[in-house]
Simulated assay, not measured.
Amino acid sequence: MTYKTLTAASLVALILGSGGALADTWRYAFEEAMDEVQGKFAQKFKEEVEANSDHEIQLFPFGTLGESADIMEQAQSGILQFVDQSPGFTGALIPEAQVFFVPYLLPADQDQLVKFFRESKTIHELFPPLYADQGLQLLTMFPEGEVMMTTTSAVQAPADLDEVKFRVMTNPLLVSSYQSFGATPTPLPWGEVYGALQTGIIQGQENPAFFIESTKMYEVTDYITRTGHNNFTTAVMANLDFYEGLSDEDKKVVQDAIAAAFDYIIDYQTGLTEESLKKIMEAKPSMTITTLSEEQRRPFIDTAPAVEEEFLKIGGPKAQEILDQMKADLAAVSGD
Results as ranks from 00 to 15, higher is better:
211 F>R: 01
39 G>P: 10
237 M>K: 05
282 E>H: 09
302 D>N: 12
139 L>N: 12
115 K>A: 14
163 E>H: 15
221 T>L: 09
329 D>W: 07
229 H>S: 02
99 V>P: 00
297 R>P: 05
254 V>M: 12
54 D>F: 05
119 E>T: 14
46 K>C: 05
17 G>A: 05
198 Q>I: 04
322 I>D: 01
21 A>S: 14
200 G>Q: 10
248 D>A: 15
218 Y>W: 14
249 E>T: 12
20 G>L: 06
194 Y>F: 14
80 L>H: 09
247 S>R: 13
162 D>W: 08
249 E>Q: 14
222 D>W: 01
152 T>V: 12
233 T>D: 07
124 H>D: 09
151 T>D: 01
125 E>T: 15
52 N>V: 09
28 Y>A: 02
246 L>F: 08
21 A>Q: 15
319 A>W: 09
64 T>P: 06
91 G>Q: 02
272 L>I: 07
60 F>A: 08
205 Q>I: 00
130 L>S: 07
61 P>F: 04
319 A>T: 13
104 Y>C: 05
134 Q>A: 12
313 K>F: 03
280 I>G: 06
24 D>S: 15
228 G>M: 02
142 F>H: 09
106 L>Q: 10
242 F>E: 08
49 V>T: 12
311 F>M: 09
89 F>D: 04
180 S>Y: 06
295 E>C: 01
40 K>A: 11
225 T>V: 13
114 V>E: 15
126 L>I: 03
90 T>A: 14
278 K>F: 02
95 P>E: 13
302 D>G: 05
52 N>P: 01
188 L>V: 02
314 I>N: 11
39 G>F: 07
275 E>S: 15
145 G>S: 10
163 E>P: 02
163 E>L: 04
208 P>T: 07
66 G>N: 08
160 D>F: 04
171 N>F: 00
86 S>Q: 06
300 F>G: 00
223 Y>P: 08
289 I>Y: 11
76 Q>N: 12
332 A>D: 08
200 G>A: 06
289 I>D: 07
95 P>F: 10
294 E>W: 03
112 Q>N: 10
74 Q>L: 15
190 W>T: 06
221 T>W: 03
245 G>M: 01
87 P>F: 01
101 F>P: 01
84 D>E: 15
97 A>C: 06
78 G>L: 12
97 A>T: 15
140 T>H: 03
267 D>F: 01
287 M>Q: 15
155 V>C: 04
318 K>G: 00
187 P>A: 11
54 D>E: 09
114 V>K: 05
294 E>F: 09
104 Y>N: 10
203 Q>Y: 08
203 Q>E: 11
210 F>A: 08
19 G>F: 09
21 A>C: 04
329 D>P: 10
71 I>D: 00
204 G>N: 05
50 E>F: 04
246 L>E: 07
210 F>S: 11
223 Y>C: 06
249 E>H: 12
149 M>Q: 03
272 L>P: 08
207 N>P: 00
127 F>A: 10
